[in-house]
Design a protein around this nucleic acid. Structure first.
Lengths: 243, 243
DNA sequence: GCTAGAGGTTGACGTAGCGTCAATGTCAAC
DNA sequence: GTTGACATTGACGCTACGTCAACCTCTAGC
């Protein structure tokens, strides 16, 4: 007693293409194949199919399903294993959702987040108290959400870029090049590009020139750009660029 | 002022392969291509890359990213749109997690859930009160989680299979065939296969024979199998099969 | 016996976003 | 001149099938 492929597909709520695919993958063979090549499935095959579909609906991949069914692996163990992956996936999703929400708020807040972002690129936790003091605990939390939503590699890449830029500035300052020369202009462009990669940063020249003043005024920035001389050089280069 | 492909890749925390891929997709062209075919990227390209990677990390696909950047679509609108999808995905995950957890408990609970599953295949909500009365509110909640974790199509397919089986039983009973004949045996096999597709269902013949008695004893089952005569026929067929 | 129509078969391409060879050219350094 | 690092352009691989395409097969009606 068996039925042709479409009947079985209808009974199980799937398609004949899927059944053929399972046949190709060795996951579910027809119980009988006619002389004309037609596939027929019996009750046993249908039962097996139901199990396959059940496990598939739980999110398992075909190799994992084959493992469970053919090697008689323990369903509960395999499912618990799968559950762990589902939870991880969920956490990843949660982080991503938080990150997207934070970004949307940034975009809507406009300039409000600029200084906060300035800190984000550097050590980040180093300025926690000050950020909270100036812009509130909420601002720090948002910044933190954005930062922590990045993977370790991404954070590393980000920091690498920031420190590379800073090092180049410092080097240029030490070599005593012309702050209004071509090399300095190139550095300014990199600096602006970096700032521009952060959503919510204003694009006006006033902002960048003002930033240069801030680098000189605030010792912590000076430290990043090779001392006060470096910060001064950055300021001059920015000013020359936008003059 | 530009840099070769690997430098840009390192600066942005990605790979040269990815940059070439973006070039192929028209998402990010090199600012300059040497006579030897080497790709070079300038500050503008790097900025664009940073933006691409940022959006990518937020989970957007490459076409969506191109849409935002090239057509100057509104970032916030696109992201809110994306956020909706993320929430949907999360809900799907939550349902799947609940479903897997319910299944694990079923597998571990063994036979305890069998009668509950019997109801699941039918209308489900129709028996809510009785299920809660017999097996507790918790049991109903679990059953509900399993059932509602299925997509509408899956539920339809499931119900279709159940009613098809029931209709075939009813038809066979009306035609007055032999409950111990081949046709009846085939129906029994389908019935057993259906029950077997539910994890946690016992496989003993005693269980199936007892089930036949229950079909006769309980009017609601009789209704599904074409009246009392139908239920009686099912019971007899099951008994004959396992005798 | 013929024909239409429904349903079966085996390829083979498409999907998202690159990773990963493979075969080969280029450039800086020793 | 050679070596080693880095560049290029194909092209396959991965998940689980959907979707043609080209070509049989079976059933039913005339």
């Amino acid at each position: 007693m068996d039925w042709p492929i479409t009947d079985i597909a209808r009974l199980a709520g799937t398609t004949s293409r899927t059944l053929r695919h399972y046949g190709d993958r060795g996951l579910l063979e027809p119980s009988r194949v006619g002389a004309n090549g037609y596939r027929y499935y019996d009750e046993r095959a249908l039962t097996r199919l139901q199990r396959i579909l059940l496990l598939r609906d739980l999110g398992l991949g075909l190799p994992a399903i084959a493992e469970i069914i053919d090697r008689q692996a323990d369903d509960a163990v395999a499912l618990r294993d799968h559950l762990t992956r589902l939870h991880q996936e969920k956490q990843r999703l949660d982080r991503q959702i938080a990150s997207v929400e934070a970004t949307i708020e940034k975009l809507e807040g406009g300039e409000q987040l600029m200084a906060e972002d300035m800190f984000s690129g550097f050590d980040h936790t180093e300025y926690k108290e000050e950020v909270e003091e100036r812009w509130g605990a909420d601002a720090y939390a948002k910044s933190d959400a954005w930062w922590t939503s990045m993977s370790a590699d991404e954070q590393k890449a980000w920091k690498a870029r920031v420190s590379q830029l800073a090092a180049d500035w410092s080097d240029a300052a030490k070599r005593g090049i012309d702050p209004s020369g071509d090399e300095a202009r190139a550095l300014v462009e990199r600096q602006v590009a970096w700032l521009g990669s952060i959503p919510g940063t204003p694009r006006s020249s006033d902002y960048y020139v003002g930033l240069g003043e801030m680098y000189v005024a605030d010792g912590r920035f000076a430290k990043n750009y090779g001392g006060l001389a470096g910060a001064t050089f950055v300021r001059d280069a920015l000013a020359a660029y936008y003059r």
